[in-house]
């Protein structure tokens, strides 16, 4: 292999790893593997996390679990499911908190903690990096 080829391959490899790095953190909505729900619309998920709805479509109570405020997964989840920036989500919750209508979802430190909680509670709904998914939780199909 010529030196030129080696350099080209090295650059290609670098470019591939960079581009896969940009897409690997796919955040998915998860529920317990014991939860009867398997598909929700993005809007239904958004409503549960924005305090507009406290139920799954089947009428059962839904308990949303947030990740830490500074986490990339959280920002990505809200951008993808609600179209809101962190500041817009905060402004939204300010409207709810300061009218006594509710408190934001319970917060845990990271995706592993979310998975632990969701796995143990059929009412819980969370979001984690797809790479963390295992048999204890079920990825919600979201359209």
């Amino acid at each position: 292999m010529s030196l030129v080829n080696r350099i080209v391959f090295a650059f290609l490899g670098l470019a591939l790893s960079l581009s896969s790095g940009a897409t690997e953190a796919e955040v998915v909505a998860v529920v317990s593997s014991r939860c009867p729900e398997s598909a929700l619309s993005r809007n239904q998920v958004a409503d549960i996390f924005l305090g507009r709805s406290s139920r799954f479509p089947d009428g059962k109570l839904a308990v949303p679990i947030d990740q830490a405020e500074s986490s990339a997964a959280r920002d990505e989840f809200y951008a993808a499911f609600t179209g809101k920036s962190p500041a817009q989500v905060k402004a939204h919750w300010s409207k709810i908190i300061f009218t006594g209508r509710g408190q934001p979802p319970r917060e845990v430190s990271n995706g592993i903690e979310v998975k632990k909680l969701v796995a143990g509670n059929p009412a819980a709904i969370g979001y984690i990096d797809r790479k963390l998914v295992d048999g204890s939780v079920k990825v919600l199909r979201t359209q």
Partner: peptide, 28 residues
């Protein structure tokens, strides 16, 4: 129920979209 609540005491009336949070500048 989770969908039906009653309150007794002092409230701010939700007359307009931001009426009950008009003191919370961060919200608008």
């Amino acid at each position: 129920t989770p969908d039906f609540s009653v309150r007794a005491g002092r409230i701010v009336l939700p007359t307009f979209l931001y009426a009950d949070t008009r003191k919370v500048g961060y919200a608008y």
